[in-house]
């Protein structure tokens, strides 16, 4: 899906996203932010911030910069930040494949359900590494296809097909292929959500 199609898709769903699809992603957001174990001095970049539903899970003092390519999703996030008076949470409209931050800016960089949506995952991961400090942490939550997936996962995946189409996910996205170019120094890989559908990856940024 190209950038314009992604923007259009998310324009259609932004109004009811949190009450519907958002529920599918919530446990993954919560789990990965718990793993990130942020403290008050950490600076975090979240790619694919969407409606900002994950922001509530970070400590108030942690500086979090969230980016997204969909202005309609960010409008919802903006309202949320104002309502929550979240002074350390910031949002920007930006393309994850062309991050407009200096090198080595963030302690932790997280991609939430974006690596299989973005047009060029290789560019995205290169940018994530560039803006993350050396020895900083990179986190990814995504579904990676797996030949050994059990029957329930496959049924769940089929059930999610209309959603996948609407949100522009690539139907087949195995981790081994992704990591051939991503070259992540993976510290931990775990699963979360119903049927263990989503993968959570923690890697260190070795430059």
């Amino acid at each position: 899906m190209d950038e314009n199609s992604i923007i259009k898709s998310y324009k259609r769903v932004s109004g009811f996203y949190d009450a519907t699809f958002g529920q599918v992603f919530r446990p993954g957001q919560k789990a990965i932010i718990k793993k990130m174990d942020c403290n008050s001095t950490d600076s975090v970049l979240e790619i694919g911030i969407g409606t900002g539903s994950s922001l509530q899970y970070y400590p108030d003092e942690t500086k979090v910069v969230g980016i997204d390519i969909s202005p309609d999703m960010l409008d919802v996030a903006k309202k949320r930040i104002i309502e929550d008076q979240a002074q350390n949470k910031h949002i920007l409209l930006m393309n994850g494949e062309e991050l407009t931050f200096a090198d080595n800016t963030f302690d932790k960089v997280v991609g939430m359900y974006v690596v299989s949506v973005t047009q060029d995952p290789r560019k995205l991961i290169e940018e994530m590494k560039r803006v993350c400090k050396n020895d900083g942490d990179i986190y990814i939550v995504n579904h990676f296809s797996n030949e050994s997936d059990n029957g329930l996962v496959k049924i769940f995946e089929k059930g999610l097909m209309p959603l996948s189409k609407l949100l522009g996910w690539k139907p087949y996205f195995p981790f081994a292929e992704f990591n051939k170019y991503a070259n992540l120094n993976v510290q931990e890989m775990s699963k979360v959500n119903i049927f263990d559908y989503w993968n959570i990856i923690h890697a260190t940024n070795d430059k």
């Binding site: 960010l74 903006k78 949002i91 920007l92 409209l93 393309n95 407009t100």
Partner: peptide
């Protein structure tokens, strides 16, 4: 900067 959101494109 639209509605407080910088547009970095």
């Amino acid at each position: 900067i639209r509605d407080g959101i910088p547009i970095m494109l």
